[in-house]
Design a protein around this nucleic acid. Structure first.
Lengths: 106, 106
DNA sequence: AGCATAGGTAGGAGATTTCCTACCGGTCAA
DNA sequence: TTGACCGGTAGGAAATCTCCTACCTATGCT
């Protein structure tokens, strides 16, 4: 993961919800995003800054508004990070291989 | 994500390294994992507990050892979580589509 | 039995996160 | 230009995270 701490950025549910809104509704100014949360605007600003630092959103000033938009590249990198784990769930056999000398217990 | 806080579990680099070791080398007892880290064993135990709570590893006692093994299901769920974002990086056109319907304001 | 080993729990220090209120600068409209 | 609005920064409180040392239990070995 080249971007600074994408995992940490995704660890917070508010930030994941922000990404979902930007994905489903497209780019939006801060206030319109803030309306969706039971949280003061400065806190939202902070979350947006974390997302921006992680490269997950871009910011574009338009007049006195700032539109935030999804930037998906770090998520593609996350998908790449997941790739080597795929065989563990894609192939039942591969999964079993790992757990082979298991007595089913708790 | 059904498992409790898989995202939070993945936010820590030590825990991601633990998952990588279990993926590449298969299940191992705690001490053998701890040898790979510049960290005291109780701290490692704590990380393993977080991974276990997130459903990312299983624990199997064998004598006085406990073997930890990768449990990939939550990672598959993470891949599922990523799916709706795929079109944003898979299709350049789809990405543009989002930027196009610039809603100027609320 | 006696001792060593594997690995967990207890509890605490310091860093970080996540929220808040107060405030500030920039932009638009009258 | 004055005032309202957008959204950021400052700074702090409380919670959580990440590490530590000290200690405990359980298992295996001799």
């Amino acid at each position: 993961m080249s971007e600074p701490d994408v995992f940490a950025a995704l660890a917070n549910p508010t930030r994941r919800e922000l990404l979902r809104l930007l994905r489903e509704e497209g780019q939006q100014p801060v206030q319109r995003l803030a309306d969706r949360f039971d949280m003061r605007r400065p806190s939202l600003s902070e979350h947006l800054r974390v997302l921006k630092d992680a490269g997950l959103v871009t910011e574009q000033p338009v007049g006195r508004q700032r539109f935030y938009a999804l930037r998906p590249e770090p998520l593609r990198e996350l998908a790449d990070w997941l790739t080597p784990y795929e065989r563990f769930w894609r192939s039942r056999l591969a999964g079993l291989r790992e757990v082979l000398d298991d007595v089913p217990d708790e």
